[in-house]
Structure formats: structure tokens, C-alpha cells
């Protein structure tokens, strides 16, 4: 095997794992869109907020410290303890569930039966509100996530594959964090699919996704199901926030990953959980491979910024429901 070919494979592998990170964000969109028809613009901010909350809890930071100090004239910042990661993750999940409940109770409960565009606007409002709350609660400085996730290239993989393609090839460079992210994402997706397919609540979730009125008529509580999907989306956001946060620090720009998820959704379909994963992988591999083979040599590089959107555009023209989007059932 020639070294060039092997480097190509390395690009594909790295693309696959970058794709998984996109997919993690897209997954949150899919969950909420499928069950409620709401395109949740706030998904990226939810990932940021979840990551901020996790860091804040782990470091024993006092939430709303600035506000408390301003009102009561105190000067507190930290509780003075460190919370172990497992417990902090558990508490963050609780916060995300509380957030899901609040969103349903204070916003969407009052917007039942409204136009999709109105629901979409509400999520934009929600995104900026949550961003503000995140700032107020935990401050706006860039944080590092000390979860102890492995970082850097995997020496083991590099050594194992060193010399495969002759002297020019030094082995695959694969980021350990990407490997962890891939594993976590696969477990998460398998869990979500099993939940949707084989449990009573999962079945109810799919029923609600199909027909709100009919779900109501058989006694499924829409509010309950919506709190459930927003909670699941919150948990997915937490995982995405952790993975992206570990990569590039927990900071405001984390919320912009939502935009990276859009082409993934166009490709995979807005209503398919496996579609989000496969779509993410295609985008990941596609943009890396395009950059490697055409972008860098001929177009001056930086094609990764726009390639995904072009691909999504092409897909929109030829297959608007995406690869795995639910087929619109039309009986003849």
C-alpha cells in the first residue's frame, strides 16, 4: 500500500470521528423536532450551558455569584469544595431536566397549535435568554473542562500502524478524545434507539411525533412527552458540550456548533436518529477528504468552512427529506 493511500485513510478516519461530534449536536435537534415539530435553535446554547454548568459545579462555583454579591453586598465566589465528576454530571443532568420542564411550562405550553415559524422564533428567544442566564450563573470567562478525558494523538495506534506503507508512512495519527467521543456517541445512539423502539415511553414519543391529536386522544400527555424529549435533548447537549468543550475549551463559541449541525440534518433527515449519525459522518469524512484531495492542493484550502453547506444544498435539491428522513407515507 502506498503512503498516499494510507494518508487518505487517515483523513477518512479523522473525518469519521469529527463527524461524530457534529452528529452529537444534530441528535439533539432531531429528538425535539421529531416529537414536537419545533426546530430548536437553542440546541447549541444548551450544549454551552450544560458544559458551563458541569464546569461550574465541579469547581464548586456559586451560581449567580455576581448577582448575589451585588444584591447582598457579599463577596462570595466559591463554596470551597470540588465536586467529583460523576456527581457533577448527575447534578448537571438534573439541571437540564429542570430546564426542560421550565421550557415546557413557561413557553411551549402556551404555544400549542401555533405556526412552526412562531415556535422557531420562540426557540431563538430561548437561545439568547439561556445564553444570558449561563453568563449570569457561571460568568463569561473561558473555562477548561477537567474531566480527565484523554487528549492528544494515540501513540498506540501510531506505533501499531507505523511502517505499514513503507518508510514514508509514520502511522495513523488519531486523536484519543475523538475515539472516546465516537464510543460515547455510539452508546448514546444505541441507547436512544432502543429507548424509542422498545419502551412504552419511547413508543409514546414516536406516537406523539406522528400525530399530536391522536396521541392526546389515547391519553398520552403531550406536556409530559415534551418535557421528556427536551430532557433527552438536554442530556445529548451535555454530552456534545463535554466533547466539544474538552476539545476547544468551554466558551461562548461553543454555541455556534449548532450551525455545523444544520448541514448534517439536511443530509441525515430531521426525523431520523441514525440519520443524524450517518449524516454527521458523511459531512465529517466529506469535508476532510475534499480538503485533502481538492481543497488544499487546488483551491487554497479552508474548504471545510463551506463544503458541508454546499453538500447540504445539493442534497436539498435532490432529496429534500434527507437520507433517512421519514418517508412521507402516501397511499395510492
Amino acid at each position: 500500500m502506498s503512503a498516499d493511500f494510507l494518508y487518505g485513510i487517515e483523513v477518512v478516519l479523522n473525518g469519521l470521528m469529527a463527524g461524530v461530534l457534529y452528529a452529537l449536536v444534530a441528535l439533539g435537534f432531531v429528538l425535539i423536532f421529531k416529537a414536537s415539530g419545533i426546530f430548536n435553535f437553542a440546541q447549541g446554547v444548551m450544549a454551552l450551558f450544560a458544559a458551563l454548568t458541569l464546569v461550574g459545579i465541579m469547581e464548586g462555583q456559586v451560581p449567580f455569584a455576581h448577582l448575589i454579591n451585588a444584591v447582598f453586598g457579599t463577596n462570595i465566589h466559591h463554596f470551597g469544595w470540588q465536586v467529583p465528576a460523576i456527581l457533577a454530571i448527575f447534578l448537571t443532568v438534573l439541571v437540564m431536566i429542570a430546564f426542560a420542564w421550565a421550557v415546557q411550562h413557561f413557553v411551549f405550553r402556551h404555544l400549542v397549535g401555533q405556526e412552526p415559524i412562531i415556535l422557531f422564533m420562540a426557540t431563538i428567544g430561548l437561545a439568547y435568554f439561556l445564553e444570558g442566564v449561563g453568563d449570569l450563573m457561571w460568568g463569561s470567562s473561558i473555562r477548561t473542562l477537567a474531566l480527565g478525558l484523554p487528549q492528544g494523538g494515540s501513540l498506540w495506534v501510531e506505533e501499531m500502524t507505523n511502517g505499514l506503507g513503507g518508510d514514508d508512512f509514520y502511522g495513523f495519527f488519531i486523536d484519543k478524545l475523538d475515539m472516546v467521543a465516537t464510543l460515547v456517541a455510539l452508546v448514546l445512539v444505541a441507547g436512544l434507539v432502543a429507548f424509542a423502539q422498545y419502551t412504552k415511553q419511547g413508543r409514546a414519543m414516536r406516537a406523539v411525533a406522528d400525530d399530536h391529536q391522536a396521541a392526546l386522544s389515547v391519553g398520552i400527555s403531550l406536556s409530559y412527552i415534551w418535557v421528556l424529549v427536551w430532557s433527552l435533548a438536554g442530556i445529548v447537549a451535555l454530552v456534545a458540550g463535554v466533547m466539544w468543550g474538552a476539545k476547544s475549551g468551554v466558551q461562548f463559541s461553543l454555541s455556534l456548533i449548532a450551525l455545523k449541525a444544520l448541514p448534517v440534518l439536511m443530509l441525515g433527515g430531521f426525523t431520523s436518529i441514525p440519520g443524524a449519525i450517518v449524516g454527521g459522518m458523511i459531512i465529517g469524512v466529506g469535508e476532510k477528504l475534499f480538503e485533502y484531495t481538492i481543497g488544499a492542493p487546488y483551491l487554497g484550502g479552508a474548504t471545510e468552512n463551506w463544503f458541508a453547506y454546499m453538500l447540504a444544498l445539493v442534497f436539498l435539491v435532490f432529496r429534500p427529506q434527507g437520507l433517512f428522513g421519514e418517508r412521507i407515507i402516501e397511499r395510492v
Partner: peptide, 25 residues
């Protein structure tokens, strides 16, 4: 319990899954 006009089955669920959603409560 109401059976709505125009059937309103859950299209993407199988018949059996549809029936099982009826037992949700």
C-alpha cells in the same frame, strides 16, 4: 376515549405498536 374522525393512526408505527399506545394510561 375518543376515536377521531379520519382514523388518525400513528402512520410510522406498526399496527401492533398502535394498539399498544392505546394501553398507555
Amino acid at each position: 376515549v375518543q376515536v377521531m374522525e379520519g382514523r388518525h393512526c400513528f402512520e410510522h408505527l406498526t399496527i401492533e405498536e398502535n394498539l399498544l399506545t392505546g394501553a398507555y394510561t
